[in-house]
Design a binder for these strands. Structure first.
Lengths: 154, 154
DNA sequence: TACTGATAGTCAGCATACTGAGCAATATCC
DNA sequence: GGATATTGCTCAGTATGCTGACTATCAGTA
């Protein structure tokens, strides 16, 4: 029997578990209540103002059915707004609010600290190498999940 | 603004997402309906017959509140049994069934194929290195999640 | 032995993720 | 122009994962 520690799937699950815990702890300590998923969505909305939900989902590789709830919570917290698109009445345009911008700014140090903390067992060089290998494996497997990464359209 | 691809947390989430999708696809194609989490639990029960739920949770780093539901589903599928422990009336002893053993045996090739597939973008050497770095990062962060890995007690 | 603390398990509640279905609106093709 | 396909979004249902609370039981100690 193969050991769990020889199964990339198990290691992936475990590393993610720690990454989320670290993120929530750091951000919580800074006085904010934002999940990793909500953070990524909000940051992406800020950089791509007016994007629709499908585009947002593609940019951060979320399932489109997951985005609905995530945006719901961002809107409910007053960090983002959802408007009907004038160009396509099916679509909703997303916009960050001033409050969302403030939150992003103040939360950034905690987010960066979390990223460092989840690699604390590795040397800087090893951390870089881990990220490189993850990027490479992800690129090769991108189409294998229901929610692949998609670049923004013009 | 840091790119998502420079955030280990985001890469962790993405790699895990692909790993789960690959696992479910391979196992589903083989004609089985078992999640990665259920597979790991069942395999661990097989190797440690009669273990209780807390020990099981520790061996695969699941939260104890998650184990309840996972075992529920294994029992419901007829793959495992839950008995009251004669030594400790709080505890439940877990046992794999014959059906569970059969399933494990038949599912193994698909599980192994999935592990290879999720590393398909990497050379064998790179795959080894990725696993080594993940193990190292996980070991350093083990206590940071609510569900750390625990070795079985004597 | 009675008290105190720890432990095994469950439950309610919330937030990802996914499958699959459905609705409304847009795009495409004849 | 009208049938058809596609797209954007939502919803119901299921499975992790977590927080926090609770019950029952056990273990250690005064």
């Amino acid at each position: 029997m193969k050991d769990n520690n020889d199964m990339p799937g198990h290691l992936a699950r475990r590393f993610q578990q720690i990454a989320v815990a670290v993120f929530l702890a750091e951000v919580g300590e800074a006085g904010f209540d934002l999940t990793p998923v909500q953070y990524a969505a909000l940051a992406t909305i800020k950089v791509n103002p007016g994007l629709d939900q499908v585009t947002l989902a593609g940019l951060i590789a979320y399932d489109r059915t997951t985005i609905t709830g995530v945006v719901d919570r961002l809107v409910q917290k007053g960090l983002a707004e959802r408007r009907a698109s004038p160009r396509d009445r099916r679509a909703r345009e997303l916009e960050i609010t001033d409050e969302g911008r403030r939150t992003l700014r103040k939360i950034t140090p905690a987010v960066e600290a979390a990223q460092r903390l989840m690699l604390r067992g590795l040397s800087p060089k090893e951390g870089e190498e881990l990220m490189r290998l993850l990027r490479k494996a992800i690129a090769a497997g991108n189409e294998l999940s229901r929610a692949p990464l998609r670049n923004a359209q013009a």
